[in-house]
C-alpha cells in the first residue's frame, strides 16, 4: 500500500478525532446534568435521568444513529450528517459517562463528607472542595476507557455518510480493491490514537493521584 493511501487515512482520522472529542466533551456536559438529575431529590428528575441512561445504554449506537439521522429531518432539522453523528454519539456517551460519574460520587466515603459537615462546610462547599475532586479522581480511569470506547464507536458514523477514518478506508478499499491492507491500516491508525489516549489518561491519573483512599 502506498504512502499516499495511508496518508489519506491519516487525514480522515482528523475527523474521527474531532467528532469523538466534541461528542465526548458535549457528552460530559450532558452527563453531568443527567448525573445531577439521577442523584437529585426530585423523583421526576430521577426517573427521567434513569430512563435516559437505561435507553441509551440499552440500545445499539448504530440504531440510535440511524434513528437520529432519519428523525432530525422529519422534525424539520435539516442538518449535515456530521451534526447528526455528533448528536447521536453525545447522547450515547452521556448515558455511559453519567453512570461513571454517579459511581464516582457514590464511592466517595461517607466519612469524608461527615468530616466536612463537622467542620461547618455548606453543602455547596462540600461539593466543590471534597466530593467533586475526589469523584473526578476516582472516575478518570473509567472516563479514559469511555473515551477510547467512543473513538472506536465513531467508526459507526460511516454508515450515515460521514467520511471519517472507517468510511475513507471503505471508499479506498472499493476503488483500489485492496481491502486487506486498507482495513488493517485503518485499524492501525485507531490503535495508535487509542494508545495515545490511554497514555494521556494514565498521565492525568498519575498527576492527580495523592495515593489511595
Amino acid at each position: 500500500m502506498s504512502w499516499k493511501l495511508f496518508w489519506l487515512l491519516v487525514e480522515a482520522s482528523r475527523l474521527t478525532i474531532i467528532l469523538s472529542a466534541v461528542s465526548i466533551s458535549l457528552g460530559f456536559v450532558l452527563a453531568s446534568l443527567v448525573c445531577a438529575a439521577v442523584m437529585s431529590g426530585n423523583r421526576a428528575a430521577r426517573a427521567a435521568g434513569r430512563l435516559f441512561v437505561s435507553f441509551f445504554r440499552g440500545t445499539p449506537l448504530l440504531v440510535q444513529l440511524l434513528l437520529i439521522y432519519y428523525l432530525l429531518p422529519q422534525i424539520g432539522l435539516n442538518v449535515p450528517s456530521e451534526v447528526a453523528a455528533i448528536v447521536g454519539m453525545s447522547l450515547c456517551t452521556a448515558a455511559y459517562q453519567a453512570e461513571i460519574l454517579r459511581g464516582g460520587f457514590v464511592s466517595v466515603p461517607r466519612g469524608l463528607i461527615e468530616a466536612a459537615n463537622m467542620c461547618g462546610f455548606s453543602p455547596a462547599a462540600t461539593f466543590r472542595r471534597i466530593r467533586l475532586p475526589i469523584a473526578v479522581q476516582l472516575t478518570i480511569p473509567a472516563l479514559t476507557s469511555e473515551a477510547i470506547m467512543m473513538l472506536k464507536s465513531s467508526s459507526l458514523v460511516s454508515v450515515v455518510g460521514v467520511i471519517e477514518l472507517t468510511r475513507m478506508a471503505q471508499d479506498l478499499a472499493a476503488s483500489t480493491y485492496r481491502p486487506l491492507e486498507l482495513y488493517a491500516a485503518a485499524g492501525f491508525v485507531y490503535l495508535v490514537i487509542n494508545i495515545v489516549v490511554a497514555g494521556l489518561g494514565l498521565g492525568l491519573e498519575k498527576r492527580m493521584s495523592w495515593g489511595r483512599l
Binding site: K152, S155, T166, Y183, A186, G187, Y190
Partner: peptide, 10 residues
C-alpha cells in the same frame, strides 16, 4: 484497540 466494524470489514 480497534473498532469492531473495522475488524468485521477486514
Amino acid at each position: 484497540g480497534t473498532p469492531f466494524l473495522v475488524q468485521i470489514f477486514l
